[in-house]
Simulated scan of single mutants.
Amino acid sequence: MMAHSEQTKPFIPFKFPEAAALGVPDQYGNKQGQKIPKETIYQQANPTHAVKQLFVNQVDHITWRYKLSADTLNVAASEDVHEIQVFDIHLKADCDALDRQVLETLDKAIPSNIFFRIINANERQPKLQCAMAYKRVNKRDTDVMVVQDYFSSEWATLPVVKSVTEATQKLPVVLNMAGFYTELLRSLLPVPARSGERIDEQLSRISELSALHGKLTQLQDKQRKEKQFNRKVEMNRQINQLKQQIRSLQDI
């Protein structure tokens, strides 16, 4: 499962610069990206038969749309983040959601960071969901990327599926590629960053919050089934403690 953003206002996708667009220009001069054959992904990632079946059942096609770099974004380079790829994943007609294992396979096949745009054109109005993993270089083996949690936006309604850049927001103002990666990931996180908080600290806080929410749900279910009054009172005390811990971690 991917963690979803719990934003109070609707998610607005980013508009990426044309300088970073890939593919051959169409009659209007717009580049529509490069299609990536599924076989190419299989060769790079060597997925199991079950994962291949997910690609077959869920993915219509994958397009590599943008290559975001220091040059195309006009920002300083970063040692940890050289490039960020933007992949559009078009879902099949009978599929409404993408399995996380599909994203993991793509992240395994591609060594750089990937910002995914998942497009569902099954309804009257096409929808877009953005997703990204916290992906970092392995400290022991710098040629290997470590993929951690995935985060995703809510589904945003698109006017036209062919025009993902409509109804978009400008990119965040940053100094370098690492800062840009952080802001892209933060746009999908369920809890806003605190002042001066590093991305790893924010992710650690989100992980702790997730664990506490799980404990709270478990305890509340247990309390509802409990018959003894004294046990119910004790559980209520523990529930209030957990709620307080959650509140303190959510405070900005």
Rank of each mutant, 00 (worst) to 15 (best):
T105L: 06
T105C: 14
L242Q: 08
V24C: 06
G29Y: 01
Q44D: 11
K67C: 10
W155K: 07
F116Q: 01
G179M: 04
N176Y: 03
N122K: 09
T48S: 15
Y42I: 08
K139R: 14
E83K: 06
R65V: 02
G33N: 09
L249G: 09
Q43R: 14
E18C: 03
Y150W: 15
F55H: 11
R100D: 05
D251W: 15
Q228K: 14
K162I: 02
P25F: 00
R198H: 13
F55K: 08
N138R: 06
K92M: 07
V56Y: 15
K35F: 12
F87H: 00
K225C: 04
N122V: 02
P17S: 04
R117V: 01
K227F: 09
Q238W: 05
V59A: 06
Q245P: 07
F115A: 03
S152E: 09
H61G: 00
A97F: 10
I206T: 05
D107W: 06
K15R: 15
L188N: 02
K227V: 12
S152L: 01
K243M: 12
I118C: 04
A109E: 09
P17R: 06
I252L: 14
K67V: 03
S78A: 12
M177T: 05
N113C: 07
Q244L: 13
L128S: 00
L184V: 10
A45K: 11
P25R: 08
D141W: 09
S78H: 10
D149E: 14
A131Q: 07
D94W: 06
L188F: 06
I89T: 01
I252T: 14
D143V: 10
Q241F: 11
R198A: 12
W155T: 03
Q43L: 15
S152W: 04
G214R: 11
V147A: 00
A167L: 10
Q58V: 05
Q43T: 13
I119K: 07
F16T: 03
S112T: 13
H213E: 15
G23C: 08
L98D: 08
I36M: 13
N113F: 00
V164A: 09
Y134L: 08
E83T: 11
W64D: 06
F16E: 03
Q85F: 05
P111L: 07
T8M: 09
F14Y: 15
T63C: 10
